[in-house]
Design a binder for these strands. Structure first.
Length: 191
DNA sequence: ACAAGGATCCTCT
DNA sequence: GAGGATCCTTGTT
């Protein structure tokens, strides 16, 4: 049986400060090819932010960050993990939101196959692996095969400093730009 | 052409 | 809690 794919959130949603878009993404659904994840953890990265890949100027890898909002920026980390970002802010302003965690709400069988039997997606590498993403999706629109759709709004969230950015300035390391939603407890296929 | 290091994950102790 | 995996991207020679 086939089911209609929900409509994507319009690109204008992303054309705001990344640290405002980020918490607004909690509870929304990122989907690709039969797998849907409820977003539970994100981080914002902004222009002139020493933690952001855009900080040292454009390169072939990070070029999508300066592009139009509502597209993906995907890169390879530690040689083996893909990281999924949503490009934010108006074109020309380099900023993005990193998707660090989600809960599988559709496509558990596919996720288990990709994740070695696991369903947990608490970590950016796990998120991209569950969705089957790689660098070929960098620059892709978020209203196509890869898309973000509405979900249950999140009433509350917590914020903390971002993870794994020891290379950034003290000021940027201390920004509370990691946003975490309360766990829903719901997981497809959980016992 | 080369070396360094990374917005991490998993396994093992 | 520590360490290895694993290879691309970047800046430098």
């Amino acid at each position: 049986m086939t089911r209609a794919v929900p409509p994507p959130i319009p690109a204008a949603f992303y054309a705001r400060r990344a640290d405002l878009v980020a918490p607004d993404l909690l509870g929304r659904i990122v989907r690709r090819g039969g797998v849907a994840l409820r977003i539970t953890e994100v981080e914002a990265y902004r222009q002139n932010d020493s933690a952001c890949h855009a900080f040292r100027g454009p390169t072939p890898r990070n070029a999508p960050l300066w592009g139009p909002p509502g597209r993906a920026y995907v890169y390879l980390c530690y040689g083996l993990h893909h990281m999924l970002n949503f490009v934010c802010e108006p074109e020309g302003a380099a900023a993005a939101v990193l998707v660090r965690g989600g809960e599988v709400v559709e496509g558990a069988g596919i996720v288990r196959r990709r994740r070695g039997g696991r369903l947990d997606c608490d970590g950016p590498g796990k998120v991209a692996q569950a969705l089957g993403l790689d660098r070929s999706f960098s620059g892709a629109r978020l209203d196509g095969e890869l898309r973000v759709t509405e979900g249950e709004p999140v009433a509350t969230w917590s914020s903390t400093p971002r993870i794994g950015i020891d290379y950034a300035s003290l000021e940027d390391r201390s920004r509370p730009w990691r946003f975490v939603a309360p766990r829903s407890g719901f997981l497809v296929g959980s016992p």
